[in-house]
Design a protein around this nucleic acid. Structure first.
Lengths: 367, 367
DNA sequence: CTGTTAGCGCTTTCAC
DNA sequence: GTGAAAGCGCTAACAG
């Protein structure tokens, strides 16, 4: 019986028109009372609020976005969700956005440029207010999509002299170089490099390692261990592509660290120090050393990368290169907010740097 | 000069009407060609696709959602983003959603019921297609919001006989009980319980521990170590509320595990085994034992909770209670998809269970 | 299989 | 400070 025309009907939920009617004001006033309360007289605002309460009114964001052409969505594309590194970045982003109306929307590219492109196409349909992507090696098409996105774009976790828009990150080559220098300065001479799956940024660290060892005249290609070379290591289901399904990544498994050290020690001239491309590998190396009774740092130096909490708490404590993941996430959002507010940015490129955390595991002569 | 009326203008981006015009078809045909290609003749579909290409058309999701009253958004509320446990859950959710048009939107409640309520209010404005919340202890208001959400709701990571809608999780009491039984069966008699910040589910585990130790007649309240009792432990910036800012959580810091073991060993009757409410604490305990030359498992048994990869790779390998985080995320999405497809669900409550992973750290008599 | 029409619920525009 | 009217871009509901 209820106006059963064949015309379309809403979903039955109260609209702002109903709120306005109940409050005895125009819809426009109701809308303003909700979005810009200070532009509305106290009395009207109060009655609108009462009506909202009574009807249990929930504004419809789609309608708002359509009418206002602004979505308040910040799209964030990360290569993995299960690595601590990126969850810290994401946390920095959320924290940086606190108090703004901006909503985060996360996509997982799985270290795959094509997937990134696909996700971009999907996410850009929302007409986001900003986009954050990881790394600087987007595909040509992705780059073009981002350039046309019509919103601020921030590339994070790396630096480049050719940003799409803005960049917040650090130099992986420099970081790899610094960590390696640290080992060299501590007196180690047979440096190994352990790495899992090599993505663009991991490659950068290796380049830094190679540069430092070459300069010191101690470069040993036979001491570079990549997961790809280790057919013997059972990655199990984790091998179904990077970052799929259960378990950890092929590039950050503690078991891989153990296996690699085991391999390295079989060499005629085994390493006296290992630079692990991530901390989890380093923990694995430490456990393997423990199990073999190898003294760390005297017989073997260990340095990780990223400096998870675990490193400082290990026994012996593990040296690492601290990267500023949370801060990068947080800062990238500040960059976006500035851009959205129309405040000019002095610099398009923010190099957040890093820090060598020297601990017991590389302190050969100390205690 | 360009039609500069004072009427509203779009944002300049091509609309489906322009695509249709260029393709020489009606807008409806263009719309169908994009959403349901099989319902459109090949020729028209091709010309629409060409027009899309040429204009660089990107559909506007707000308009679509408004017109179709369906947002394709799945809202996911988790208590923390930086704990491995939850990033694995989230990964399961993303993987389970693969191939559907559904988009994930994550909110971080910070283990705070009020924040959860606030986030719900905001997220529900999107008229989500489904909502996933963590735990079963929502506030009254949150519960009401969810009941009125008009979409499937899944509570995850716990079970309850009074679900809002559906539940996918496991019993924390049972899990705590099982882990404790394992220690008892291995012959340990002075069982300690180490825990960081206690949230609802962590409490459940403690109840299981208490029940098992009571039944065995070995309950020792002095061996229950909570982070709250340890004023001495410097949580630093992590104490600014759970899950804020830099660093790890007060409930999952390896340093905390070390400090707690240190405390416990000062007791006149120190524990001979420790059940850690999370794996990171357990790793810390292991390192502290190492540094003191305490033999694990002979002098000290260690059991963690969740079974991160690290546990199996440690030396000695660490026992833990394996929980199915990824699977819970994945399954919760299957539940949602079923509900959205109108397929009836045989059971509202899915108990995913857990598994005791017995390893060296609790194998007192073995090797 | 294709097209026309009438909204979806909100906000911009502009006049009061 | 307030409100009426006119869309925003798309799709449900028809009819052909």
């Amino acid at each position: 019986m209820s106006g059963n025309s064949r015309k379309r009907r809403g979903d039955g939920r109260p609209t702002i028109a109903q709120v306005a009617a109940l409050a005895g004001v125009g819809t426009m006033t109701a809308s303003r009372a909700l979005r810009t309360p200070h532009l509305v007289s106290d009395a009207l605002r109060a009655s609108v609020e009462r009506a909202v309460e009574e009807l249990n009114y929930v504004p419809n964001l789609s309608a708002r976005a359509l009418a206002s052409k602004s979505s308040d969505v910040v799209v964030v594309l990360v290569p993995t969700l299960t690595q601590h590194i990126f969850s810290e970045v994401v946390k920095g982003i959320y924290d940086g956005l606190e108090g703004t109306p901006l909503q985060v929307q996360i996509g997982n590219t799985r270290y795959d440029a094509e997937e990134e492109e696909r996700l971009l196409r999907v996410f850009l349909r929302q007409r986001p207010s900003a986009v954050i992507v990881s790394g600087t090696h987007q595909s040509k098409a992705s780059r073009q999509l981002l350039e046309r996105a019509g919103c601020p774009v921030v590339q994070i976790m790396d630096v480049s002299d050719d940003p799409i828009d803005r960049i917040v990150g650090y130099s992986h080559v420099d970081a790899g170089y610094a960590a390696t220098r640290h080992l060299i300065e501590k007196g180690y001479e047979r440096l190994a490099f352990f790495t899992g799956w090599m993505h663009q940024r991991a490659e950068g660290r290796l380049r830094g390692f190679e540069q430092a060892t070459r300069e010191a005249g101690i470069y040993r290609p036979d001491l570079i261990f990549r997961v790809e070379d280790r057919v013997s290591f059972d990655l199990g289901s984790t091998m179904a592509g990077p970052n799929r399904r259960f378990g950890s990544h092929p590039f950050s498994s503690p078991g891989l660290g153990r296996a690699m050290l085991s391999d390295a020690l079989d060499l005629p001239r085994p390493p006296d120090a290992v630079f692990c491309n991530n901390d989890i590998l380093a923990i694995g190396v430490l456990f393997e050393a423990h199990s073999r009774g190898i003294a760390v740092p005297d017989q073997l130096g260990i340095c990780g990368f990223n400096d998870l909490d675990l490193m400082a708490a290990a026994h012996p404590s593990l040296s690492s290169l601290r990267t500023l993941r949370y801060e990068i996430g947080f800062e990238s959002v500040q960059v976006i907010r500035r851009a959205l507010d129309g405040r000019p940015d002095d610099q398009k490129i923010r190099n957040m740097g890093f820090e060598v955390m020297a601990r017991q595991s590389t302190n050969r002569n100390g205690g």
